[in-house]
Design a protein around this nucleic acid. Sequence first.
DNA 1: AACCAGGACGTGA
DNA 2: TCACGTCATGGT
Length: 228
Amino acid sequence: MNLSTLYKILLEKYGHQGWWPLLELHEKGINPTKSGSIRGYHPKDYSYPKTKDQQFEIILGTILTQNTSWIQVEKVLINLKQLNSLSPDSILNLDKEKLKQAIKPAGYFNQKSERIILLAKWFKELNHTPDRTELLSLKGVGPETADSILLYAFKIPSFVVDTYTKRILTNLEIINEKEKYEKIQKLFHEFLPKDFKIYQEFHALLVEHAKHFYLKKENWRKDFLKSQ
DNA sequence: AACCAGGACGTGA
DNA sequence: TCACGTCATGGT
């Protein structure tokens, strides 16, 4: 099983995923059939983000979703929308306690609020496309968050390696259990066309696939990919 | 009722 | 470098 084949199989099984979900699309009810109540995806439409505010919304999401499910992040984004605070300026003008309350559903509201304020200040002054090193220097931005920002907010082909990706590749015996982040990322960079669309889809497909087979460890062996 | 969610960071060895 | 504890709410 190589990565190109894996991508092909997953795309065939699950279809285009249309990440990153955006609140505006959620409200318009686009792609309402997505699993659960989660909406806001835009399959086969790679024109997002269309505005700087949408770009910032994605960055907000990358911080908020750390070690938390997306459904919780969605609640926070709706809270912020209600407070009219989805842009950097409005967040900076928001009372800190109100910000914390809004963030609560996603957990870690103390850290996340501080980091979001710093990010808002950073993004406000940003007048160029950041690279990975710059992103990693920001508090609260680790490897996965940095790559998510590059890939989904700036459309730069930097592959996102999350815990699901590690689980799947480990189970398929493509990597060993404790392989390091950058080395796994290098695999994807080496064996795939350097195309942000493919990177976006592939990462989203891995997450989708993991939700079917990797939520409990005893289900790992049920992964149909093992018999491919 | 434990366990986990689209991680990152600080600490000590 | 690396293993380990911490951060926090909510769904299953």
